[in-house]
């Protein structure tokens, strides 16, 4: 029979409880917290940065920052959006320092809107090519990676947070410090631009009727 006052295993604690334990000097709790986000945060960073080595570095920097700022974290709030905000800020700084110019070539294949007005895409009419077979998935994955990487950072960021990390719009707005409407407009622009870039880069189906 378990002791009445037995503490639950660290793995059963919430993120916020783990951070509270870490603030009290429990390093094991911090280790559990890091491990809990190892896959999810790393994948977010790898997609955002487009580079595993940078993702590895920023992952560590993000948790160092969490450690430094742990004392100021309000444990009544959710830890995950806070963590991803920290990581996104670090990643953005990293990108600015490295001034990536990688996808300049992609832009050449996209229709230019020289008039400066807002361009729109209609998904129903865009005739977007979608991979039908598993064999295509690997090749598709690489193109998708390039396309995502070519998105402006502020769009890529909200797209990744909303889609892969399943953050609510309100959480994204709160943690990025932008209005909710801006989150929406950025997401619409991110998906629209992604669709346009994908359409330009996707492998053409040779058998498709012309």
């Amino acid at each position: 029979m378990p002791e009445p006052d037995a503490t639950p295993p660290l793995e059963d604690l919430t993120d916020e409880q783990l951070l509270g334990r870490h603030r009290s000097g429990d390093e094991k709790a911090f280790e559990v917290l890091i491990e809990r986000y190892r896959l999810e945060l790393f994948h977010f960073l790898a997609r955002f940065l487009g580079d595993r080595t940078s993702a590895d570095d920023i992952f560590q920097e993000a948790f160092i920052q969490v450690h430094i700022s742990a004392g100021t974290f309000d444990t009544s709030r959710r830890f995950k959006p806070w963590l991803f905000t920290i990581a996104a800020n670090k990643a953005r700084d990293h990108l600015r320092k490295n001034k990536r110019q990688k996808a300049a070539s992609l832009s050449a294949s996209v229709d230019q809107h020289q008039d400066g007005g807002q361009a729109f895409i209609d998904l129903m009419e865009a005739d977007l090519p979608l991979p039908q077979e598993k064999a295509q998935q690997k090749e598709t994955g690489q193109i998708v990676r390039d396309v995502v990487s070519s998105l402006p950072e502020h769009l890529r960021e909200v797209l990744l947070l909303a889609y892969f990390n399943r953050m609510a719009y309100r959480e994204i707005a709160e943690n990025l410090g932008i209005p909710l409407g801006t989150v929406k407009s950025r997401l619409h622009a991110a998906v629209g631009t992604f669709a346009e870039l994908w359409k330009a880069q996707a492998p053409k189906d040779e058998d498709a009727p012309g």
Partner: peptide, 30 residues
């Protein structure tokens, strides 16, 4: 009430890949 019109595009002030034109979704797709 939270919906806003898309932000004015100003690539010079936006971090990211230069030269990529921004294409937004229509209202229904949004």
């Amino acid at each position: 009430p939270t919906h806003q019109t898309p932000e004015p595009r100003d690539p010079a002030n936006q971090p990211g890949t230069p030269g990529v034109p921004i294409v937004s979704l229509g209202e229904a797709d949004g």
